[in-house]
Design a binder for these strands. Structure first.
Lengths: 329, 329
DNA sequence: AGCCGTGCTGTTAGCGATAACAGACAAAAG
DNA sequence: CTTTTGTCTGTTATCGCTAACAGCACGGCT
C-alpha cells in the first residue's frame, strides 16, 4: 500500500480513502491513486483490514448434510447472493446430530470473526446450542424453532403436509399412511404434524407413521413393509428420494401406482417429474429460502432489526401422475 | 492475549508459545497459561495471526455447480477432511461457464490469502485461467486437464465409458447410442471418447451423440428422440439423472427397458438403484476424489511436492436391471 | 575459575490496513 | 481584513498476533 502511495505521490492514508470510497478526495487525486493501483497490480490485504476494522466481510453457514438436495440448494443460493453483496461464505458442515459438533462448528465460525451466521440445521437440539451464542453476532436460522427470539426463515411444513394429505383425502381415500423423516429433524416433525392434523380434521384413522432417513434406500424398506398391507391405498412420503424407494417397492410387489396406491412426495426435486410414475409432490422453493435468509441476515448486520423477524415461505402442491382416486371395490 | 499473560504472570509471547505448541516452555508455565486461558475464555484472533504469519489456515474451493450430486459430494468430503486437518474452507461457486467468472472466483480466493485452492471446474476453459494463477499458491485440480503441470485428481472417465459401452456390446448389442453431457465439460468429453473408442475397437457403427445438460429434463428430451428410432437397442447416458429422463421417455413410448432397450448411466447416485428399472451405471467414488485432492493439496502446502502429481481413481461398473441382451428378432 | 551451550522467558519490531486527530489551504461570512 | 467554515491531505497510534533477538540462569566442560 505504501508503494502505491509513493508512486501516486500521496500518503497511504489517501490510498486507503480512495479504496473505501471516502467522499473527500479530489477527483484528480483519486485518478492518480487508481492509476498507481493498476500499475502495481495492488490488492489490499484483507487480514489487515479485518484486524483494523473488526469486520471480515465473511458470513458463516452451518449446514447439516450438504449432499441432500435441499441444503445444497440453499447453500448455493446463499453463496451466490452473498457474493453479489460483497461477502464471502465459509461453510461449517456437520455430519452428526449431536450438540457437541454443532457447538464446535459455531465456535469455529465465531473464532473466524464472521460478520453473521446462517444456521441450516433443522434439528430440535439446535435450539439449545443457539441460545449459547454470543449475543453480538447476528444469526438467522433456517427451518428452526419458531419460539427462538432470533430471526427465522422457514417453509410452512405443516401446511405442505396438509396440502398433500388433503389432496389424497379429497380424491376419496379413507386414510393416508405416512413415511416420515428422522424424528430429530424439525421439518420431519412438521410434516408429521400437518399430516396428522389433516387426518384428524376429517376424522380419518391415524396409523402410526413409518420412519426413514431421507434416503431412497430407507424409503424402499418402508415400502416393502407398506406393500404387504392390503388396505393400503394412499401414502404421503416425507421427501422425494424416499418416495422413489416406496414407488420401487410397490412396483416390485405388483402394487400399481396410482391405480392401486397413490403416493405423494415432498420437495419437488428436479428428478421427481421423471419418476415412474411422475411424482405428485410438495414444492419447496429452496432458492427463495436461501435468498430470504441472506437478506434477513444482511439486514441484521446493517442494524435493521426492526423489519420482519420471521419469514414463512409457502409450499405448493404439484400434482402429477402418482395420485388418483382409490379403486372402487 | 495480554490479559491472559498478566493473569498467568508471564509475557504475551509466552502465551503465544503455549498456543503454538512451542517445545521450550516449562510444563508448569504451560499449565498456568492454560488455566488463565480457560478462566478468561480467551480465543485467539485469527485475523491478527493471519496478518503476522501470512498464513490463514483456510483453503479455497472453486466449484462449478454445487447442486449437482458429484460436486456437492466432493465439496462435502473436502470440507470434512479439511476440518479434521484444522483448515477452514471457503467456497467460491460459479454459475456460468465463462472464463471471467472463473477468474473472478479465483481472484477472490487469492485476495483472501487462502493457503491453497482446489478447483472443481471440469471445463476446457479452466485451463487457461489456471495458467494465470500466481505461482506461489498450491493448487489441485479435480477432473482437470492432465497436461497441466499442477497436481490433478481425476476419475478415469474414458475407462468408465468403455466399461459401460463394452458391457452393452458384450451383451450382444450391435452398437450403442450415447447421450452426452455439455460439451464444455471435460468429463463429458472423456465419456464420449471412451464410448467412441469402445465402439471403434470392435468396428461398431458410431452414431453422433445427443447432448444434454446433465438434468433429467434434458435426458427426457433426448429420450423422446431416441424412442422413435426403431433400431435402437442400447443407450449409454452420461449421467444418472439424464438416464432417468431417458427411461421415462422410453417408457412413455412403450419401449420396455431392458427387454427392448438397454440403458446404462454414469455416477451411481444413491437413487439410481431405485429407478424403474434399477439402473446399471458406472460408479464414481466422489468421496475418494474429494479426500485425495485434499491430501494432495495439504502435501503441496507442506512442501511435499515430490509425491504423486496425478491421482487417477478408477470407476467401476455396477450392473443392475436396466441392461440385457438385445431382442433376438 | 572461566567458558560455553542449552533451556526458558522477556523485549522489541513489524505484519498492512483503518481511525482519530491535526494541519494547510481556499472559499464564505462577519 | 479577520474569522469561520469546509475540503482535502498527512501524521501518528492502534488492531492482536508472531518472529527475531536478547538476556538470564544453570549445568557440564576444560
Amino acid at each position: 500500500m505504501s508503494d502505491v502511495a509513493e508512486l501516486a505521490g500521496f500518503s497511504h492514508q489517501t490510498v486507503s480513502r480512495v479504496l473505501s470510497g471516502h467522499p473527500n478526495v479530489r477527483p484528480h487525486t483519486r485518478a492518480r491513486v487508481m492509476a498507481a493501483i493498476q500499475e502495481l497490480g495492488y490488492r489490499p490485504n484483507l487480514a489487515a483490514r479485518a484486524l483494523a476494522t473488526g469486520r471480515t466481510q465473511t458470513l458463516g453457514v452451518v449446514c447439516l448434510n450438504s449432499t441432500l438436495y435441499g441444503p445444497a440448494s440453499m447453500l448455493y443460493a446463499i453463496e451466490e447472493a452473498a457474493q453479489a453483496a460483497g461477502y464471502w461464505v465459509t461453510t461449517a458442515s456437520i455430519r452428526a446430530f449431536d450438540r457437541t459438533s454443532l457447538r464446535k462448528a459455531i465456535a469455529r465460525l465465531v473464532d473466524q470473526k464472521v460478520d453473521g451466521i446462517v444456521v441450516i440445521a433443522p434439528l430440535a437440539s439446535a435450539r439449545e446450542v443457539l441460545d449459547e451464542l454470543p449475543g453480538d453476532i447476528p444469526v438467522v436460522t433456517v427451518e428452526g424453532d419458531s419460539e427462538r427470539s432470533e430471526a427465522l426463515v422457514r417453509v410452512d411444513q405443516v401446511l405442505g403436509a396438509r396440502l398433500a394429505t388433503e389432496h389424497l383425502l379429497a380424491a376419496g381415500h379413507k386414510t393416508v399412511w405416512h413415511v416420515a423423516g428422522p424424528p430429530e429433524w424439525l421439518d420431519a416433525q412438521g410434516r408429521v404434524a400437518g399430516w396428522r392434523a389433516a387426518l384428524e380434521a376429517v376424522g380419518a384413522e391415524v396409523v402410526a407413521p413409518l420412519t426413514g432417513d431421507w434416503s431412497a434406500e430407507s424409503g424402499y424398506k418402508a415400502g416393502q413393509l407398506l406393500a404387504r398391507i392390503g388396505e393400503l391405498s394412499a401414502v404421503f412420503v416425507a421427501n422425494d428420494p424416499m418416495a422413489l424407494g416406496v414407488l420401487r417397492a410397490l412396483h416390485e410387489r405388483g402394487r400399481r401406482v396410482p391405480e392401486d396406491v397413490s403416493v405423494v412426495g415432498f420437495d419437488d426435486i428436479p428428478e421427481s417429474a421423471y419418476y415412474t410414475p411422475p411424482l405428485t409432490t410438495v414444492r419447496q422453493n429452496f432458492d427463495e429460502v436461501g435468498l430470504k435468509s441472506l437478506q434477513l441476515l444482511l439486514d441484521r448486520i446493517a442494524g435493521r432489526v426492526d423489519g420482519s423477524r420471521d419469514v414463512v415461505v409457502a409450499p405448493e402442491l404439484v400434482v402429477r401422475q402418482s395420485t388418483a382416486a382409490p379403486r372402487s371395490d
